[in-house]
Amino acid sequence: MHINISQQIPNAETSAKSSTQSDANIHFERVGFRYDREGEILSDINFSLPPGSMTFIIGPSGAGKSTLLKLIYLNMRQSRGHITLFGRDTSQIDRKEIPALKRRMGIVLQDFRLIDHLSVFENVALPLRVAGRKRADYKDDVLGLLKWVGLGHRSHALPPTLSGGEKQRAAIARAVITKPDILIADEPTGNVDSDMGRRLIRLFTELNRLGTTTIIATHNTTLIPEDANILSIEHGQVTGTISGEHIG
């Protein structure tokens, strides 16, 4: 089954980002993935996500959502088929090029992945430090973003002292501090209550409005906005799509 969301969902209003984002489309063509000799965890995955779109990947636990995301953010390579990312076939990308491509993506995971001995400010600033930016250059950006996600007063705090919602907002801030072309979130609401889950989804929606291609995997369908694109996965295969309208 081949699902071309880009053809089904016009996303004209999401072109807020510059032309550098024009290659931020994600295209899967007959993609399969397996660990060694085991059976395929993903098979015959076909879809296209245009730049600036917002897509929810839904499905029960073990359906293959996280694996699908890992293929997108280059933590794994597909066993077969073709994935096009930033205009390139990922199977042709040398692993030395991966860090540079990863810096064009923001990744949010269910377990937050914050570094406990670094303050919230330092956690959020980490991608900028890694990219070689000077502290004086990014300090105001980080503080501004922390304020924006409602953590302005917690910049000095260490992650273990934060609530689940605060941790996830810090993780989101870290994912978007570099203004990535693609934002990927794997069960971002999994460790927070439903009220905080709704707030986080609103945060993602706001970020998508700024032009970031946003992909969120979740098994909690109650949090999905009505106008969102949905890609449904079960047993490693795409079982359906629901197309939203004018996201952003």
């Binding site: 924006w148 302005g152 707030r199």
Partner: peptide, 17 residues
């Protein structure tokens, strides 16, 4: 990036960071 809080319902005392 816009300079407004997304979670407007969360009341935080913002210290000078």
């Amino acid at each position: 990036m816009v300079n407004t809080l997304v979670d407007t319902d969360i009341q935080h005392t913002e210290l000078t960071a």
